[in-house]
């Protein structure tokens, strides 16, 4: 079947199998490999993207279901070559080690900050509890998101 959707501001039309998961569509058909895949049961969150501004685990929905919607992936987080404050925060506070969970957790964090620009650490922890990280013990992820909250209008390092 044919699907059309907007990904990071660009419209794509592709022929896909009806059963294809969005995560595979993004990775294999569009080559956007920044979105990862990590479990079979929608538990890990490394596949998190934004659909119409909401964080969604892209392994839980079919590409066909995303048709007509606006998808934002990690590749679309930076703006005009400038890293998003969330990306800068992760760098400043060492919020990533292997980097595998990082795109997903950053997409969740961006959504949180859009809705609540000054979340406390408990709110942050609750918000990212669907994103498992095996490396960082979460502390620096929380600090990274706080950093982003404290530097919302930072000019930013060029990417």
């Amino acid at each position: 079947m044919q699907v059309t959707m907007t990904v990071n501001g660009e419209e794509f039309t592709r022929e896909v199998e009806p059963r294809m998961l969005l995560v595979h569509f993004l990775r294999d058909d569009l080559g956007l490999t920044g979105t990862h895949w990590g479990c079979d049961t929608s538990n890990c969150g490394v596949c998190t993207v934004q659909i119409d501004g909401q964080p969604v685990k892209s392994c839980t929905i079919l590409a066909a279901m995303a048709a007509g919607h606006e998808i934002r992936t990690i590749e679309g987080l930076e703006q005009n070559g400038t890293l998003d404050p969330v990306q800068q925060g992760f760098m400043q506070e060492h919020g990533l080690q292997c980097g595998f969970c990082t795109p997903g957790v950053m997409m969740t964090a961006r959504w949180l900050l859009d809705k609540n620009p000054d979340p406390d650490t408990e709110t942050i922890r609750e918000c990212i509890s669907g994103n498992i990280c095996r490396c960082t013990g979460y502390e620096n992820i929380v600090r990274a998101i706080r950093w982003a909250a404290e530097h919302p209008a930072t000019e930013g390092a060029s990417a």
């Binding site: 990690i74 987080l77 595998f100 990082t102 795109p103 990417a159």
Partner: peptide, 10 residues
């Protein structure tokens, strides 16, 4: 190594 991971370019 951070920048490539942060940009989804790992």
């Amino acid at each position: 190594e951070d920048v490539r991971f942060l940009r989804g370019k790992g």
